[in-house]
Design a protein around this nucleic acid. Sequence first.
RNA 1: GCCUCCUUAGCUCAGCUGGUUAGAGCGGCGGACUGUUAAUCCGUAGGUCCAAGGUUCAAGUCCUUUAGGGGGCGCCA
Length: 478
Amino acid sequence: MALHEKISSILATEPLGSKVTVKGWVRTFRSNRFVAVNDGTTLQSIQAVVDYEREDEALLAKLSPGAAVSISGEVVESQGKGQRVEIMAESIEVHGTSDPERYPLQPKKHSLEFLREIAHLRFRTNTFGAIFRIRHTLSFAIHKFFHDRAFYYLHTPIITASDAEGAGEMFRVTTLPAGDPPRREDGTVDFTKDFFQQETNLTVSGQLEAELGALALSRVYTFGPTFRAENSNTSRHLAEFWMIEPEVAFANLKDNQDLAEEMLKYLIKEVLAAHPEDLQFLNDRLQQEESQKPAHQRSSMGLIEKLEFCVAEDFERLTYTEAIRILQNSKPNKKKKFQFVIEDWGADLQSEHERYLVEKHCKKPVILTDYPTQIKSFYMRLNDDQKTVGAMDVLFPGIGEIIGGSQREERLDVLERRMAEMNIPQEELSWFLDIRRFGTCPHAGFGLGFERMVQFVTGMSNIRDVIPFPRTPGNVSF
RNA sequence: GCCUCCUUAGCUCAGCUGGUUAGAGCGGCGGACUGUUAAUCCGUAGGUCCAAGGUUCAAGUCCUUUAGGGGGCGCCA
């Protein structure tokens, strides 16, 4: 395939003297002479120098921010200071003009909130260019990580009939007419007339299906869209997000923690290696943003420093019981500074407690394990103490829970008892129980919130800024 | 869903305890200049102060309601 040159490769190889053609979008046009062209392949724009005395004035007038152009010319050493090479433009073609009076992106800093309202154009900014290049690298690295470790990528269904996963409110999927659906005699909607002849929803997790794959293929992972119809209004939640769910047969909670830690470090390393420039830009952006904040709200580390730190340090591993003890003895708990003061073992941990453990006490990523049975899901393996389950949460600074996982309950009798206790209908999940009936084995897995990972690596504080088109309550534009 | 803050020009924001014709920077338009780096300089246009009610001699400013957005909490990844 013979394509025109990417600006990233021209800037990397600096082929002085050769003729090139670049195609991209105008960022700025200065002094009637310097066109900064960006094609999204790198943070940097390339400078094309036009001879304004020879070029048609009408053509130059079209070189406003946002215009799509092809520019051909010779790569030369730059006379100016800001760049090493530039292109002496010999021919310029404007493919699409961009009315400067109506184009919303100016060569200046825009607020993230404003850019969110023009999500279709925000890819053209330095910040979002960097974010989405990094997002790609992360998603590619996930496949590479698992592929290299003999995991099979399993496509679990997006439409599901089970509503017993317990991971949250679901979006209904139906082809029945909204206004006048067929009804049974008692007036309820007759879903046997629906497309699947029963009620269906969008998936909230591929875990249960991934377990089925793992108990045959040994190691599988899913990576797909996930939907939660919760009315969540936070900087960490989306109604549509992407989740990675590895599931490993013959693995216990320790293996699970090791896998999670190894994966997170691998992903961070890949991004550090592939995107030094984009990360530096985001690092500086974050630093500038934080300099506006009062001193006590600023983070102690810069973005790149934080990423390198996370790769170098072992994650802190604590049991829930140990965490409760730490929290009970903590200053904010004793001085009743927590909104929810920790009284007894068994209490659910709130964000403020997780944040204290990660950001104040351990000062590094934390893996919390072995939570009380009653605050966790039915499928988590009951520990020998009968009070706790083999659950694990990986907590990251600034983000909170980035991974939630567990060793699964593989013993049929125990699982059935727990489902009964928690009122989980067993008929619907007969396939899930069959796996315990025929050749069951210890297994474990976890779910990684992909956007939370992108947030962490890019330092973006709002999850809506790390997915191209965010879906949140009341928001499905674009 | 709960708590809290915000909404003034295309964008970012100022407008003090209510008091004449609502301001700045950037952007636009016109011009000058031309090796610039979010170019610079001169000039100029641009506003239903989110919407609807209310208090007052007087509301961008105070009160109520509504809409949109930010932050925090809950639910979680």
